[in-house]
């Protein structure tokens, strides 16, 4: 589904990604771990098409499309979803309104009729249950004054609403209390299917007990330096990143 080959990306002439390779197939969950500043969020942004980053070398294929051809909103409509590490506030725009605009624009791009108020509400109700989020929160300005946990939960709610093919969760677990972590993980697991794939970026092995990955990758200094199965996460937790540095 996603194939990244020799990806080099920089921002303001600072090289961040330096020859990154990653292959994700449908039905898989990949975890990406790595020290602060190693380029995890950068990778997520580059896949999503943020134009502040220059891709200087390499390419990203998604569902047999060369992604560089597509604008961020086109990528989103193709089914790429990014749960932001730092969700953005938009004053005066409720999550409901935000999602209504998004869902209907995605539908339109597929030649489907926009959902009317009743149908939309029904969809919302269904997805709200999944992450146990309250209507009241969704009618407030999006992310404005939300607690850290509420923001993350709201991201997963949006993911559920948009039903993406590839979801990238950037540190969705940070800021969640134990109960919320379970709820969110449970939501993600429910949405998992053989037709979609998930990349979870995290610092904590704990999340991977709930969202069990098929692969774990270690991203350091702009490259994936080690890949393995879920046991790699345990090993990392025990030994720290220096262990990998030393081995390389």
């Amino acid at each position: 589904m996603l194939e990244i080959k020799n990806l080099h990306a920089s921002i303001d002439d600072t090289k961040i990604l330096k020859g990154l390779n990653l292959k994700v197939s449908t039905g898989e969950v990949h975890a990406i771990m790595g020290p602060n500043g190693s380029g995890k969020s950068t990778l997520a942004s580059v896949i999503a098409g943020r134009e502040d980053y220059d891709v200087t070398e390499g390419k990203i294929d998604f569902m047999n499309n060369e992604l560089s051809e597509l604008s961020p909103d086109e990528r989103a409509r193709e089914g790429i979803f990014l749960a932001f590490q730092y969700p953005v506030e938009i004053p005066g725009v409720s999550t409901t309104n935000f999602m209504k605009t998004a869902v209907n624009q995605v539908r339109k791009s597929k030649g489907e009729k926009p959902l009317d108020a009743v149908e939309f509400l029904k969809l919302m109700k269904e997805k709200m249950k999944l992450v146990n989020i309250k209507q009241e929160l969704l009618s407030r300005s999006i992310n404005e004054g939300f607690s850290g946990g509420e923001k993350k939960r709201n991201e997963i709610f949006q993911m559920a609403m948009l039903n993406p093919k590839l979801s990238i969760l950037d540190e969705t677990d940070s800021g969640l209390d134990i109960d919320a972590l379970k709820i969110v993980s449970n939501g993600v697991n429910t949405l998992r299917s053989k037709d979609n794939a998930t990349i979870v970026v995290t610092h904590y092995q704990r999340l991977l007990n709930y969202i069990v990955p098929d692969f774990v990758h270690v991203l350091m200094d702009g490259k994936i330096v080690k890949s393995g199965d879920k046991n790699l996460a345990l090993e990392l937790e025990e030994k720290g990143y220096d262990w990998i540095k030393v081995k390389n």
């Binding site: 098409g49 961020p72 938009i90 998004a102």
Partner: peptide, 16 residues
Amino acid sequence: FYCLQRGIDEENAIAL
């Protein structure tokens, strides 16, 4: 970018 990432195009994003 947040709007774009949800599939909303630029024009609608600004309007929103």
